[in-house]
Design a protein around this nucleic acid. Sequence first.
RNA 1: GCCAAGGUGGCAGAGUCUGGUCAGACGCAGCGGCCUGCAGAGCCGCCCAACGCCGGUUCAAAUCCGGCCCUUGGCUCCA
Length: 496
Amino acid sequence: MSLVVTDTLEDERVEFTADGDVTLYVCGLTVSDDPHLGHARLWFHADVLHRWLDYLGYDVRHVENVTDVNEKITARVGERDEWTAERDVAETFTATTFDAMRGLNLLRAEVYPRVTEHVPEIRDLVETLIEKGYAYESGGSVYFDVTSFDDYGKLSNQDIDELEAQGEPDERSEKRNPSDFALWKADGVSETAAREHAKHDHGDAVPTGETWESPWSEGRPGWHVECSAMSTTHLGDTLDIHMGGRDLVFPHHENEIAQSEAATGETFARHWLHVGLLAMEGEKMSSSIGNFWTVPDALDELGVNAIRTFYAGAAYRSEQALTEETIAEAEERWERLSRTYDRAVEALDSTESRAKAEDGDLREAVATARGDFAAAMNDDLNLREATAALLDLTDAVNRHVDAVDDESDAAYDYRALHDAVAAFETLAGDVLGLQFGSATDGDVDLAGELVDLVLDVREAEREAGNYGRADDLRDALRDVGVEIEDGPDGATYRFE
RNA sequence: GCCAAGGUGGCAGAGUCUGGUCAGACGCAGCGGCCUGCAGAGCCGCCCAACGCCGGUUCAAAUCCGGCCCUUGGCUCCA
């Protein structure tokens, strides 16, 4: 059973194969603002792919770029007092991006290359393209001649003759063909661009951004060439997997292929995986239209596990709807997994747990869940099916624990529960990146002891028949985020 | 206008490559039951019902072919 993925270039499902190493390049993001849940969807799916490849035994070399040279970044210079240059803005949002990534429990990439660090490699690549006849200098800028690269359009099925002119009017006049794209741009950011993208009024002090020396002009790298230069620098001429948002297929990824393959003569990426966009109430999740939910806000409100469970609710290649309903569903699914995990661990630790007890149904359910999970993951990373396999296992665990609780002389099947817990930890934990168990820091320990005290009081009230008083205590605890559940062996609680 | 991805039950979301075994699994919402002082959690059962529209091919079409409608993304550096 091997991994099958949907490859945009082949336009079909293909079997993924690689020798021991896998190189994975992900088009990260432009650090011009706080990242939102749309960006995080790509990160999540790249992360789960990375985790699944790890699980399959590959050695994954994962690189994710950070674009820190951009008109939108420049446009924000001066918006805060400490933002005196493009780099200041970029540093602020690079930091919030890394915080967000850590908060989402993403595996670290091997490298997060930044454009500002790779200008020499970018210049070299542009020079190579000029030498080989694929690019030309014009007015201090350098453009890629799309008619010189026969395969141009193969990823997005674009026809050069059908494409409309790209770029500003003054840029178009410098180009040989309307669809030629810039590899190097003379001068800094234009005043119109800086004003257009700005969220504040620049007045007379319009920032122009950073510029670098080059054989053609003092200027800035083009918008597509950075990914070609950085991926090749860190992962070599041919990538195993290139991942990105579907909105980048054209022109960004198309242009990356043209630049890289023209320069090296090698296949740039063996597989192209594109993640569908996140739709928020029918609208694309984008900072430009205002319905904007940042990762830090979402982490505060929902927590990492509900967010990751939400993303696991739809295939990477499909669009996914972000609505109150779909978020609520994800929270329920996560709660169910988490509660069952806690219940299994508790049963495992209890004195009712026996090495010789045996529940054949539970043992079979664990094996089935593992098999179904792997089959779903290999089937183009079908995360909803994979999660369903885990939820089937929750049924079996709960049935087992219920059955034992109902009979005073029965015992938990230690071995089966141990297997079930291990399956949750490996598949939901390691592969899906969910984090079981509540925090165990000092604050929570103290809170737990206090809750126990309140529960003792409540139990006394219940025994005295003062149910109204008992319910008041339960409601009060819920108000501060502690959920009480009465069970056969007394009340248990969970921190929400 | 051109390119791309989609349109499946109340919601969400597989299946389309390889026509029949699947209109599947899981979850949410809803209904009934067990359990419970009540609630929650958990378990069991139910949920009559959906393949955008029109035509074609076929013994057989969600699936193949043709046309049309609609949504989203891209063609202005946006995951």
